[in-house]
Write a protein that binds this DNA or RNA. Structure first.
Length: 271
DNA sequence: AAATCTCCCTGTAGGC
DNA sequence: TGCCTACAGGGAGATT
């Protein structure tokens, strides 16, 4: 499931093949994603060059003239560069045809993702305009968490997963960051001290940074086409380990549901 | 305003 | 072995 590190890895993987290239053709085989793929994508994108590529949270942006392709991978989406005549896999929904007999191919079995064509400044698009800061950018710190959470009664885990607070912290990394920080996910975030907010922000950056670094090591394979991550799995402390012993103290990890999401923590290490 | 719930979808895992 | 069900997940949008 693509979290921020996978989206960043995808961006880095496809950039050398896409940046500056002309899109020759757009083939939409199945437009039924999170939102319908607009007909204007296939109508207006061909002939344009991709002039700039950017990630914002888990969204990817491909700028082409006065328009912009906005892509989200949902939870099962992937983008890969393949030879033009590569046989399609099930759920390969969209092709952006590139020069040199190459194709940027969008696959998404569960279709939670999207591909939109925007004509206005994407920063003002409803999907992007109210997003919080990038966790690895200069505008995110413990202060973001501390100042944003005063008076809030929601759990600290729900809070750090709220894209209006900070983007890109999905369920896996929220669980892991809270474990590393020693913070219990169920705590009311409004009661968290400034010092603990600092520590938590550090841990979020650490965990995402490390995951990106590891994604980088599989970058070649990724672009080559298999795209299945899992490279970070061996270093997970709590996610998917409910009722197993804590890696630090041996206490059995507890699993609860918080905001409809599976939440695992060590009742000893996380207070 | 903030908190909570619902929904979109399919592959996978577990139970029988 | 095969069928059935429960579950996973991002996050917008609706509801409380």
């Amino acid at each position: 499931m693509p979290e921020l590190p996978e989206v960043e890895t995808t961006l880095r993987g496809i950039t050398p093949h896409v940046l500056g290239q002309q899109i020759l053709e757009v083939v939409v085989r199945n437009p039924h994603l999170r939102w319908p793929v607009p007909a204007s994508l296939a109508r207006e994108l061909p002939g344009r060059h991709v002039e700039r590529m950017q990630r914002r949270g888990k969204y990817l942006l491909l700028f082409a003239g006065d328009g912009c392709v906005l892509i989200h991978l949902g939870m099962s989406g992937s983008l890969r560069i393949v030879p033009a005549y590569e046989p399609r896999l099930p759920h390969d929904h969209i092709d952006l045809v590139l020069p040199g007999e190459r194709v940027l191919r969008y696959c998404d079995p569960r279709r939670f993702g999207c591909m939109l064509w925007l004509k206005d400044d994407p920063q003002h698009h409803p999907l992007l305009q109210s997003l919080g800061p990038e966790p690895l950018g200069e505008h995110f710190s413990g202060r973001t968490l501390f100042e944003g959470s005063r008076g809030r009664k929601t759990s600290v885990k729900a809070f750090i997963m709220d894209s209006h607070v900070v983007v890109g912290v999905g369920n896996i990394y929220a669980n892991e960051a809270l474990f590393i920080a020693g913070v219990r996910p169920t705590l009311a975030v409004g009661r968290l001290s400034a010092a603990r907010c600092d520590r938590l922000a550090d841990c979020i950056q650490q965990i995402l940074g490390r995951a990106i670094a590891m994604g980088g090591t599989t970058l070649r394979d990724f672009v080559g086409g298999d795209g299945k991550p899992g490279y970070f799995k061996q270093s997970l402390h709590v996610y998917g380990r409910g009722a197993q012993p804590c890696t630090q103290c041996g206490t059995l990890l507890k699993e609860v549901r918080l905001g409809q999401r599976s939440t695992v923590f060590c009742p000893q290490c996380q207070r």
